[in-house]
């Protein structure tokens, strides 16, 4: 438990665990709605937000949150107006975000710091990050708890949710906002390039063995937190990039889950 004696490590673990809770929580709904590409798109837009912050001299997480919320609302509008071409609009926004990010990075004098936002950096998680992540993560958890069955219905059948009295439009907007905030907050821990994986991989593992919607959520949380903590501790001892270590830990968990499931199915067939 040597790593706990370092302040930066305690901060990293706190931030990592908060992100490790909200990413799969949002991810369950996002993946079941087959919108996982949105996470990927928003992470690239968030990078543009980070670059904007560095360029203008603001705290990059602030600008990342604002820019990704704006992009998320634009995506929701396009998704509604061009139902059949939703992927195309995502590809365009992703490209625009990345293009803007590259220009701003090259124009910025502090571009050296961009590295930590691309791949995540635990040693750079500051008190300011914690004050940002902690309350926003709690708000996201509260919103998901409050509208749990509303988001559930949207995921199961968006077209018919209104029949049960679910305010479809409002909840879609609320959902897009929490997805974009989650993505922006996760930047510090896993980096822009790997956020989408933290949203998808633990959920993919959870869905393999879940017996209900609720259990999908609990299992995804469990796999996500295991990956985050394992990844952070390993990256501390072996001096590895934390984002990559967390994601690889997640992939190993997913493979183990698939293996165990396969063996279980084979055993059951023989009985």
């Amino acid at each position: 438990m040597e790593f706990l004696s370092y302040t930066f490590m305690r901060r990293a673990l706190l931030a990592g665990n908060m992100v490790g809770v909200i990413a799969p929580l949002v991810g369950v709904f996002l993946n079941l709605r087959r919108l996982s590409l949105i996470g990927h798109t928003l992470s690239h837009v968030a990078l543009a937000g980070v670059a904007l912050g560095l360029f203008l001299g603001f705290f990059p997480v602030y600008t990342a949150i604002i820019v990704s919320i704006l992009a998320a609302l634009a995506i929701e509008k396009l998704r509604r107006d061009y139902r059949d071409y939703a992927e195309l609009s995502l590809a365009i926004i992703l490209a625009a975000g990345l293009g803007l990010a590259t220009i701003l990075i090259s124009a910025s004098r502090q571009s050296a710091g961009i590295h930590s936002y691309l791949f995540g950096s635990i040693s750079l998680v500051g008190t300011r990050d914690i004050y940002m992540i902690l309350p926003l993560a709690l708000v996201i958890i509260a919103v998901i708890l409050k509208y749990y069955y509303g988001f559930f219905y949207l995921a199961f059948n968006e077209n018919e949710a209104w029949l049960a009295g679910v305010p479809v439009r409002t909840l879609n907007v609320v959902f897009m906002v929490i997805v974009s905030v989650t993505v922006a907050l996760a930047i510090r821990v896993v980096g822009t390039l790997l956020i989408a994986s933290l949203i998808t991989i633990p959920v993919a593992a959870g869905m393999q063995v879940a017996w209900s919607f609720k259990s999908t959520i609990w299992l995804s949380l469990f796999f996500s937190l295991t990956a985050v903590n394992l990844g952070l501790i390993l990256s501390f001892y072996y001096n590895l990039a934390p984002g990559g270590t967390i994601i690889l830990a997640g992939v190993v968990i997913l493979l183990l889950v698939l293996l165990v499931k396969k063996i279980w199915l084979l055993l059951r067939r023989d009985l």
């Binding site: 079941l32 069955y149 559930f152 219905y153 995921a155 199961f156 029949l163 869905m207 209900s212 259990s215």
Partner: peptide, 12 residues
């Protein structure tokens, strides 16, 4: 979709 009969009926 990983949902039980209870959850599907309950969502309504």
């Amino acid at each position: 979709f990983p949902a039980t009969v209870r959850e599907i009926v309950g969502s309504n």
